[in-house]
């Protein structure tokens, strides 16, 4: 597992201090995928570089199995890094090496023998479904295949933690799904703690067990995915249960887990108000085994949004007026 505590990074630029990370704490247990999502400029790149110790954090700790990577001396850091595999957005494979030699690289610098390296690299390539490509050069592969090789290489030293930096941002939608499924499968098989840094909400929806929202160098929302979605009105809930289309004319949002929605709320509301609200937009999605729905309603003529909210709450639904 990986535990990040109060991680901060301050850059000095043009005489001013830039707080790229202002105290980030995360906890990713083995066998789970934690997503960190945020808009560009939120500090995602700095976070990745600090977690991978490519940049040294100004303060805070990055603990993997109790060893703080941020405080060990350089020689030990090289050893400790083997517990952390990094998957990069553009795979960052070495073009001068074959696929097999790319995957074998971490073992090569760790001093493993030639035969051992080859056997392990072939095993890893089998794991990511690319055993046939061992002798090819990276330039001969597709983007998705290159990312598979990147994942195999990250796993070569048998790490406990996989850090994925925008692993699918350079891929088409179908390949994205394949890579995400591969990561999720490897997490199950190898008991990895996976930390995915991304700007794509679909990545969170597809594979994350927990998610944190990074904004301006801080984690502003965080939690298990079902809890975060259930937190009505939160930015992550809004983003994960995004409403399609143009929302003009909507007055009231209703959010419910389908399992909770035993009460036919809309029927009750229509009876109470004498007229049914109009459904402007809606979305249904499953998170962590719970199906959520979110509806945007327009109050019927003669009914204020406020009255509609009260009627919905009386009927047992969670509702709130949409901020304009």
């Amino acid at each position: 597992m990986i535990t990040v505590t109060h991680l901060a990074k301050v850059y000095r630029q043009a005489g001013r201090d830039i707080h790229a990370l202002a105290g980030v704490s995360l906890d990713v247990p083995a066998g789970t995928v934690h997503g960190v999502i945020g808009p560009s400029g939120a500090g995602k790149s700095t976070l990745v570089r600090c977690l991978a110790l490519l940049d040294h954090p100004t303060s805070g700790t990055v603990e993997i199995d109790g060893v703080d990577l941020a405080s060990v001396p350089a020689a030990q850091l090289r050893r400790a890094r083997r517990r952390l595999g990094v998957v990069f957005q553009h795979a960052n494979l070495f073009d001068s090496r074959t696929v097999l030699d790319n995957v074998a690289y971490p073992l090569e610098i760790a001093g493993a023998g030639r035969r051992e390296r080859r056997a392990r690299a072939l095993e890893l390539l089998g794991l990511v479904g690319l055993a046939d490509a061992a002798g090819a050069y990276p330039a001969q592969l597709s983007g998705g295949q290159r990312q598979r090789v990147g994942i195999a290489r990250a796993l070569a030293t048998d790490p406990d933690v996989l850090l994925c930096d925008e692993p699918t941002s350079a891929l088409d939608p179908r390949t994205t799904d394949e890579i995400l499924d591969l990561i999720a499968g490897l997490k199950e098989r190898l008991g990895l703690a996976v930390l995915v840094i991304t700007h794509e909400m679909s990545v969170v929806t597809r594979i994350c067990d927990a998610v944190s929202l990074l904004d301006a160098g801080r984690i502003v929302e965080s939690g298990a995915i079902a809890d975060v979605v259930a937190d009505f009105g939160s930015r992550l809930s809004e983003a994960l249960l995004a409403l399609p289309g143009d929302h003009a004319g909507g007055d009231v949002d209703v959010l419910d887990a389908v399992d909770d929605a035993r009460v036919p709320a809309l029927d009750q509301v229509a009876a109470a108000l004498g007229a049914g609200p109009r459904i402007v937009s809606g979305t249904v999605e499953a998170f962590g085994g719970v199906t959520f729905h979110r509806l945007r309603l327009a109050a019927p003529p003669g009914v204020t949004p406020d009255a509609l909210v009260r009627a919905l709450v009386d009927a047992g639904a969670r509702a709130q007026e949409v901020a304009r």
Binding site: A52, L53, L54, L77, R78, R79, R81, R82, L84, V86, F88, N92, L93, F94, Y105, P106, I109, A110, R153, A156, T157
Partner: peptide, 9 residues
Amino acid sequence: DAAHAMGST
């Protein structure tokens, strides 16, 4: 970066 992240000197 990749080389460093994998523990290269």
